[in-house]
Design a protein around this nucleic acid. Structure first.
Ligand SMILES: NC(=O)c1ccc[n+]([C@@H]2O[C@H](COP(=O)([O-])OP(=O)(O)OC[C@H]3O[C@@H](n4cnc5c(N)ncnc54)[C@H](O)[C@@H]3O)[C@@H](O)[C@H]2O)c1
Ligand SMILES: NC(=O)c1ccc[n+]([C@@H]2O[C@H](COP(=O)([O-])OP(=O)(O)OC[C@H]3O[C@@H](n4cnc5c(N)ncnc54)[C@H](O)[C@@H]3O)[C@@H](O)[C@H]2O)c1
Lengths: 246, 246
DNA sequence: CTCCAATGGAGAATTTATTCTCGATATATG
DNA sequence: CATATATCGAGAATAAATTCTCCATTGGAG
């Protein structure tokens, strides 16, 4: 399909027009890039976090030099990442903080949180239910569990529903995201129920390797990956490398 | 300090000896590579998880083709990753499962769990305390909180200690790892206490960008990075790409 | 025993991500 | 007003990670 990747030298004239028609408002003077590096996407929330601090401190502009120093990143990398959002900075001044925040939130889709269901209200599920992800683009609108004694309980303001309702609930309310916090053995079958209901994306906190249709996006929120990095370094006495996102 | 990163061409003769002296047993016929790709390290727990399933199913060998299919990875990538552990596979047969498990655990340092302290016994901290990470190379041996009403409580078998004891506890017991589960505003100061006590690595569940000495390894267990990937895809209707670890 | 198909290993090629270099620009300062 | 400097932006260069290609080895089928 999309094979315009070699170089960006395919500059036909119609491009500009088509693109400006798509891009929304102010901060975007140039075409949003078609394909964006995933590591950059993963870094954007970090910038957002800092930018909100800066606003709280009354700053109106911020240089990528400063952002980079705070995150121990390379300044060029920060500039490249921020460029994804379409915001342009001013030499000697930096980027407008408020505009950047809006642009990143837009880019990530965090202005309009998507609805999600959570399945498995155990230790972890309870913590997730208690956390407000609406600043991070997600609203948990339903919680499910298989244990009869949990069904009907109200946890952090949400009544736990029986797992049997899951598929219908997702289908009926057009929920695009499922959050998996069940034991690993149950993960595959619950994931299939989510997919049957029509979920487009799954946030998987279990260690199970899910076998799902390829058009369902699965993100592992896997603790073991980061533990692997830490324990290996500790066990082998390795010198820490400057923090990367990858 | 350690600046041997350019290439692995610093081949003095002592290398071979030193290396074979370090590598322990059977499965390692060749020198363990000096520098390993971080993405590979992050993937190893996934293999480990599957391998344990295979053992439970009574399998004695496993091909990387099968592993790759189960994880939707490229078979070559699996081979490269497993090669890091030093285990050699046999054509037409695959890798010996038990040996692989041992080798990966060794490689990650998961045979002898490191001790860790957890600070912040709130929703998330409680969940973490309740989880047994000893199969993942970590033992939580102490929990701390600043809230007077929490101190003294016993959560999942551990008595919560006052934050004032933190540094001394780490120092006295030579704890190498700290787990941060406090509110973001408190993260920097708690991290500094951990470092003062002598922690070598921090597992950071907060969204704070920590400013610490470069020889302290910090791994973010950041939920927002994976959410960014999910919400952006959902908001912009992007086709899911085959799952990567990066 | 011979051949075949599945497999792992090694290294090359490719793709992706990061970092470097340089020129342009806006602000502050004298 | 002229100059110095911090900064951004774009593209080139480098580094890292992934994927491809080919070959050797093994166990099983005929
Ligand atoms: N707790 C942690 O800190 C932690 C850390 C890392 C990973 N995890 C992973 O998160 C997942 C949940 O962990 P947890 O500690 O919350 O476990 P838990 O046992 O406390 O909770 C699991 C919940 O899922 C429910 N459940 C079980 N089978 C179900 C099914 N088929 N359908 C619906 N609900 C079902 C149970 O009733 C229970 O409420 C596990 O896969 C675990 O490996 C948890
Ligand atoms: N709960 C979740 O699901 C979730 C999700 C994503 C991120 N997080 C992050 O994890 C961290 C903890 O979240 P939480 O939901 O458990 O919060 P929480 O408020 O439930 O718990 C925080 C705990 O830290 C303690 N604390 C506060 N200041 C302290 C200090 N200076 N020293 C020691 N202890 C202190 C509090 O007493 C409390 O027990 C936060 O940074 C949060 O952003 C949590």
């Amino acid at each position: 399909m999309n094979t315009n990747r070699k170089k960006n030298l395919d500059s036909n004239d119609a491009k500009e027009i088509a693109v400006t028609a798509v891009t929304q408002d102010a901060y975007s003077a140039k075409p949003a890039p078609r394909v964006v590096p995933t590591p950059s996407v993963r870094r954007l929330p970090l910038y957002l976090r800092l930018l909100r601090d800066y606003v709280a401190q009354g700053r109106e502009t911020i240089s990528c030099t400063r952002l980079a120093a705070d995150l121990r990143f390379d300044p060029t990398q920060v500039r490249k990442d921020l460029a994804l959002t379409g915001v342009v900075g001013r030499p000697k001044v930096g980027y407008p903080v408020a505009e950047l925040i809006a642009a990143i939130e837009d880019f990530l889709g965090w202005r309009n949180p998507v609805n999600a269901v959570l399945v498995g209200v155990g230790s972890l599920g309870t913590a997730l239910l208690g956390y407000n992800f609406s600043l991070h683009g997600v609203n948990i609108v339903g919680a499910f569990d298989a244990a009869p004694e949990k069904v009907g309980q109200v946890v952090h303001g949400r009544e736990i529903m029986p797992i049997g309702y899951l598929t219908h609930f997702i289908q009926h309310r057009h929920i695009p995201m499922g959050i998996l916090a069940v034991p690993a053995q149950a993960a595959q079958s619950v994931a299939e129920m989510m997919v049957a209901g029509g979920v487009r994306a799954i946030w998987n906190f279990t260690s199970a390797a899910l076998q799902l249709p390829l058009d369902v996006l699965v993100e592992r929120a896997d603790f073991s990956a980061s533990l692997a990095v830490l324990t290996r370094a500790l066990a082998h006495g390795l010198a820490p490398t400057p923090p990367k996102i990858p």
